[in-house]
Design a binder for these strands. Structure first.
Length: 874
RNA sequence: GCGGGUGUGGCGGAACGGUAGACGCAGCAGACUUAAAAUCUGCAUCCCGAUAGGGAGUGCGGGUUCAAAUCCCGCCAUCCGCACCA
């Protein structure tokens, strides 16, 4: 092989032999060597009986440049992918682009660049950046979600979902900017105002498309139990998000009907507390509200105030609790003659339950605060058994206890009272037991241009009609303008005007596009056979799916992962896939953070533009800079570090080593330049050690005859093999790196010729260092390996090392001796020594004997090969 | 507001309930060098003590245990998510 041969020349030329590792030449050379040897490509449908590993990192949004967060993310998968390949797996490790989305439209509006052009340019430059990192990716599988060849299949999937009854149209709320006359994303609503116009945002209802994810609520919940290679916290978050609850739905009868409305339907998980009711509250978005507002200007004003904030739940729920007494009253379902006021309350969500609640202040904290604010009654109906005279002040009582003041429920515990109350509701025909979900159906309509067109045609005669499959893909027109607010598809001269596929009359296309989460809900299945004529290739997905290691940011713990799980189940049901869960293993990485900088007039600055001064302050063009908090690197805040410039200066291996070196991968990491220097030194050191050892003479003593310091070095080598292999499996890459440093230190500390077999032992050690670190720093590994094995294969093609168990085993162990749990000394014993031996030797230690003088040993604890602890009395 | 995390030296962090601070960064001292860089060697949680040694110590306050960074309860700080950013 050409690169290896050229390295031999290096060794033979003394003038060059003193040179350091030249990453500039080497990295490109080895990347080409891997490509020429086709190291990372796999077949759609591999034959043979090897195990498979599908390693996937969440694909990037092509924002323009890769940033450190990307590199870190891809490196986590990269190490697993390279290690699994060496361990004999078929490894699928693809890359693509989550290419639709809002930023492309923002670029179009702000800078007049076409979204398609902007996106393609970004992809081209990011692809180049990524390739320079030297990732072991099968680039032949690359696609972008904005390719018609991809989104056409997505449209086909949508039509299949529709036929299967998983698609619905209904009204739901959006953020409406009354000045820009456009729908805003939650992100574009800042403190209740449009980010550009500054106008107060209104909640407005639009007819939109939904996927019925709630049909899968039970399955998605149950499926979490099978995901034992997911972080527990993510499963917990999903469980809470799905939010299955058992309770009752009941109708409160209005004392006086309003128009033709006779009652208000309420969902509650606490039917046991119905006698503690003090009010009924409905959401400002409740249908009844519009009826009330007619002829009631005060109510109308309150409602419009409530609606003049975005749709985001965070905004609604953290706003000050406010209410409006409508003057209406409802009757209690059980207590004869009792009636309660109906309030409109800004914290009641229309999207959960029925959009109406009954308020029981004594046993719900939020209701209690509301009742105190508006001086509503508070009736305690559950008391703890130990404190039956409990008086509610500022804290609602939500625990179990005895039901009181509740007629037929008196004396029951909470659980029995719920059952009894529901039975009573059912027998009176005013309510029923109901399982309710916090999970809502997935609204997939976006009033945006840069997304996958929803393949639907609206015909005056035939109504809503699917595009026929022969006409897929419905292509997004690229000749659009952004000189007007709103969706360019709406006012494109020709695009939306088509003939109805059913009757042939003139009709219009749906101009909403899909939520980009749809694009990312099945791309992993497409990667298995990216050129298939159907959305998925059954044999390819049968071989590769599910993804064995899915790696991405914790910020995706709920939405993306839940949508992808839903899509996978729906695709399975419709025959597009053979599995229920897309990702059997999940790893969520922390974020890469950095200070943010802005000018005094508020413009964000890149770290490169800012000059930091010794006192910690910063300047830009001679002007002072406002230093923001350390937070997630994001394009909008420009607090990103560009990996390309670091690769330029230090090489890809330095960046690869550094992003894994210091932090546990699940934790956030702050980028520091100092760390990069250290990583660079290590890369150089590996090469230097390899060159030194390559030049040392062999001797005739076999590895197995290594003794003394040579045997000690061999033990370190083999223990490192074990430790590194295990740590990789646990994603503990910072520990992998610590162990590799230790091995490098051991090699540095070993003296050539100092012990029998040292020459072979040093050679074995450097080979292990090279091959164990190769998944992280593959370029210098190849370069170093070629020095030692000039006619060898590529490290990328070598099998993984296995440790010799006799060398991993300890000759002796250090046992800590404690008195009352405090460390008082240590002793060395052969492993497996008995408790009696350990006690005897511990007691014979002068230091221990002295410390025990004058006290009586009352208990002796022995943990084999670890601890001896004496419990004493003085 | 609700749900979920995290908190250990100057810094990033390591540690199956069992010797807290591995490994790295920065620092200090020394070697090499005309010098610098690079490299190599050593020191390094804090307090008391010359040393031997002793005491304290993993955000704060409690608890369980022979033994707690680790398990439990309460608090504080901070980060992530909250359905139209991706």
């Amino acid at each position: 092989m050409l690169p290896a041969k050229s390295m031999v020349d290096h060794i033979e030329a003394p003038s060059i032999s003193t040179e350091a590792y030249d990453f500039r030449g080497a990295e490109l050379r080895w990347q080409k060597a891997w490509q020429d040897a086709n190291c990372f490509a796999v077949a759609d449908r591999p034959s043979g009986n090897r195990s498979k590993a599908y390693v996937l990192e969440m694909f990037p949004y092509p924002s323009g440049k890769i940033h450190m967060g990307h590199v870190r993310n891809y490196m986590l998968g990269e190490v697993i992918a390279r290690a699994r390949r060496a361990q004999g797996f078929d490894v699928l490790h693809p890359m693509g682009w989550d290419a639709f989305g809002l930023p492309a439209e923002n670029a179009a509006r702000e800078r007049g660049i076409e979204p398609a052009q902007w996106t393609r340019d970004n992809i081209a430059s990011m692809r180049e950046d990524l390739k320079r990192v030297g990732l072991s990716i099968d680039w032949s599988r690359e696609f972008a979600t904005c390719d018609p060849a991809y989104y056409g299949h997505q449209q086909k999937l949508f039509l299949d979902f529709w036929r299967a009854g998983l698609v619905e149209q209904r009204e739901s709320a959006v953020n409406w900017d009354p000045v820009d006359m456009t729908v805003l994303a939650n992100e574009q609503v800042i403190d209740g105002r449009g980010w550009k116009s500054g106008a107060l945002v209104e909640r407005r209802r639009l007819r939109q498309w939904f996927l019925k994810i709630t049909d899968f609520g039970e399955e998605l919940l149950a499926g979490l139990e099978t995901l034992d290679r997911w972080p527990e916290r993510v499963r917990l978050m999903q469980r809470n998000w799905i939010g299955r609850s058992e309770g009752a739905e009941l109708t409160f009868e209005l004392v006086k009907p309003v128009k033709k409305i006779r009652g208000i339907k309420v969902y509650t998980t606490r039917p046991d507390t119905l006698f503690g009711m003090s009010f009924l509250a409905i959401s400002p978005d409740h249908p009844l509200v519009d009826v009330i507002a007619v002829g009631n200007p005060e109510a109308a004003e309150f409602i419009s105030a409530c609606r003049s904030m975005g749709t985001s739940e965070a905004a609604i729920e953290s706003a000050e609790k406010r209410g409006f007494d409508t003057g209406l009253r409802v009757s209690h379902p059980f207590a004869k003659g009792a009636t309660y006021p109906v309030w409109i309350a800004n914290f009641v969500l229309m999207d959960y339950g029925t959009g109406a609640i009954f308020g029981c202040p004594a046993h719900d904290q939020r209701d209690l605060e509301f009742a105190r604010k508006y001086r509503l009654s508070v009736t305690t109906v559950v008391v703890p058994r130990q404190d039956q005279d409990l008086v509610i002040e500022d804290t609602a009582y939500t625990g179990d206890g005895l039901v009181v003041r509740s007629e037929f429920l008196n004396g029951l515990d909470v659980e029995s009272a719920k059952t009894r109350a529901i039975a009573e509701l059912e027998s009176r025909g005013i309510g029923r037991r109901l399982v309710n979900w916090r999970l809502r159906d997935w609204g997939i309509s976006r009033q945006r241009y840069w997304g996958c067109p929803i393949p639907v045609i609206h015909c005056d005669k035939c109504g809503v009609t699917p595009v026929s499959e022969a006409d897929l893909p419905v292509r997004l027109p690229e000749d659009v303008t952004f000189d007007k607010p709103g969706n360019p598809l709406e006012y494109h001269p020709t695009w939306k005007h088509v003939a109805c596929p059913r009757c042939g009359e003139s009709a219009v296309r749906e101009t909403d596009t899909f939520d980009t989460f749809v694009d990312s809900s099945w791309y992993f299945a497409r990667f298995c056979a990216p050129h298939a004529k159907t959305p998925t290739d059954p044999l390819a997905t049968k071989y590769w799916m599910p993804v064995d290691h899915y790696i991405g940011g914790i910020e995706h713990a709920i939405l993306h992962l839940l949508y992808a799980r839903f899509f996978t189940r729906a695709m399975h049901r419709l025959g597009h896939l053979g599995v229920d869960e897309p990702f059997t293993g999940l790893f969520t990485q922390g974020m890469v953070t950095h200070e943010s900088y802005r000018t005094t007039d508020g413009r964000w600055l890149y770290p490169d533009e800012v000059v930091k001064r010794a006192d910690g302050s910063a300047i830009y063009n001679g002007e002072p800079v406002i230093i923001g908090p350390i937070e997630k690197m994001s394009k909008s805040k420009r607090n990103t570090i560009d990996p390309s410039s670091v690769i330029e200066r230090f090489g890809a291996d330095t960046v690869r080593w550094f992003v894994l070196s210091d932090n546990p991968p699940e934790r956030d990491v702050e980028w520091t330049e100092a760390g990069a220097q250290g990583a660079f030194r290590f890369v150089q050191r590996v090469y230097r050690l390899a060159r030194t050892i390559a030049s040392e003479p062999h001797d005739s003593i076999a590895l197995n005859d290594a003794a003394g310091a040579a045997r000690t070095l061999r033990q370190t080598t083999h223990r490192t093999i074990t430790a590194v292999t295990e740590a990789i499996d646990h994603f503990a890459f910072n520990v992998v790196i610590a162990r590799l440093y230790e091995l490098a230190n051991a090699i540095t500390d070993s003296e050539p010729k100092s012990a029998p077999g040292m020459a072979a032992s040093r050679r074995e050690a450097i080979m292990a260092l090279i091959r164990l670190s190769a998944p992280i720093i593959p370029h210098v590994a190849e370069e170093s390996y070629a020095l030692l094995e000039p006619n060898g294969r590529l490290v990328a093609q070598l099998p993984w090392l296995t440790a010799d168990p006799t060398l991993v085993q300890r000759d002796s162990v250090t046992i800590a001796i404690q008195i009352m749990g405090k460390l008082r000394g240590t002793i060395e014993l052969p492993p497996g020594a008995t408790a009696e031996t350990a006690f005897a030797i511990a007691l014979a230690e002068p230091r221990i004997a002295r410390a025990l003088e004058g006290s009586t040993i009352v208990k002796r604890i022995h943990v084999a090969d670890r601890i001896v602890n004496f419990v004493v009395r003085t």
